[in-house]
Amino acid sequence: MQYFDVDILAVADELIEAYVEIFTAPPWEHRNAEATWAEFRQRLEADAHRPGFRAVLARSDKGTVDGFVTGWITQAPFRTDRAYAKVTTRLGAERVNELLVGTFEVDELGVRSHARSTGLGRRLLSALIDTAPGGRAWLLAWSGAHDTLAFYRRIGWQEPDPISGNETDIVVFLSPGWPGNSSVITG
């Protein structure tokens, strides 16, 4: 495992190559590879400068990126771009501020198809969140990524209940090490 902060930009092309391969394959096959490359490069260049940004890469014996995970400390005010507005819709602004702001946000986790079912995803997540403030980390996933949702549930990540009637196409997960996890799940 290789650990990075803003220095991830020195290996950005390798990371982006893996990202595009992973996130243009099913269930994301509708995404255009060139547009995905450009969008993720732009995001990575900005995200690498976020407070608390960290990344972990796992390489194959040949030196290529087999998997990666990135994240940072969620800041106030809570963002409204990308899928963040759906998080607020799903949980409500008060719970978002209570549960997510100031905690470690896992932004991207990807494992190339040939490296899946090896425990790499779990190891990458653990390597990134082991130093999360107070053991608290969170992530969101698209509800259409059924294998991804099953993976997070299988390794102990838990979903806070959405506000009744405010379900969205994203699912929020809290890390297994979240203090008092069972009491925050139901709000």
Rank of each mutant, 00 (worst) to 15 (best):
1 M>D: 12
2 Q>N: 14
6 V>P: 08
7 D>M: 04
8 I>V: 15
8 I>N: 10
9 L>Q: 10
12 A>S: 12
13 D>Q: 08
18 A>Q: 05
20 V>Q: 02
21 E>T: 09
22 I>P: 13
23 F>K: 01
23 F>M: 02
24 T>L: 00
24 T>M: 00
28 W>I: 07
29 E>N: 12
29 E>A: 13
31 R>W: 07
34 E>C: 02
36 T>Q: 04
37 W>L: 07
37 W>F: 07
38 A>N: 12
39 E>N: 12
39 E>K: 14
40 F>P: 04
46 A>W: 06
47 D>S: 13
47 D>E: 14
49 H>I: 05
50 R>H: 14
52 G>E: 01
54 R>K: 13
59 R>S: 08
60 S>T: 15
60 S>A: 14
61 D>W: 08
61 D>C: 10
61 D>H: 09
62 K>V: 14
66 D>T: 05
66 D>Q: 15
70 T>P: 04
72 W>H: 15
73 I>F: 08
74 T>L: 06
74 T>Y: 04
75 Q>T: 15
76 A>Q: 08
78 F>K: 06
80 T>E: 12
83 A>M: 10
85 A>S: 12
86 K>D: 09
86 K>F: 10
88 T>K: 01
90 R>H: 10
90 R>T: 09
92 G>Q: 05
97 N>K: 10
98 E>L: 06
99 L>K: 10
100 L>H: 08
100 L>R: 13
100 L>W: 07
101 V>H: 00
101 V>L: 01
102 G>A: 07
102 G>I: 05
102 G>Y: 06
103 T>V: 00
106 V>Y: 05
106 V>E: 04
107 D>V: 14
108 E>Y: 10
109 L>P: 04
110 G>F: 02
110 G>H: 03
111 V>K: 03
114 H>G: 11
116 R>V: 01
116 R>K: 04
122 R>I: 02
123 R>K: 14
125 L>E: 11
126 S>E: 15
126 S>Q: 15
126 S>K: 13
129 I>A: 03
131 T>V: 09
135 G>W: 03
136 R>H: 08
136 R>F: 06
137 A>V: 03
138 W>G: 01
138 W>T: 00
139 L>W: 07
140 L>Y: 15
140 L>Q: 15
144 G>K: 13
144 G>T: 04
147 D>N: 13
148 T>G: 14
148 T>P: 06
149 L>V: 11
152 Y>F: 15
153 R>T: 14
153 R>L: 12
155 I>S: 06
155 I>G: 06
155 I>M: 06
159 E>I: 13
161 D>R: 12
162 P>G: 02
163 I>R: 12
165 G>D: 06
165 G>E: 05
168 T>Y: 08
168 T>C: 07
170 I>L: 14
172 V>R: 01
175 S>T: 02
175 S>R: 01
178 W>A: 05
179 P>S: 09
179 P>E: 07
184 V>Q: 04
184 V>C: 05
184 V>M: 03
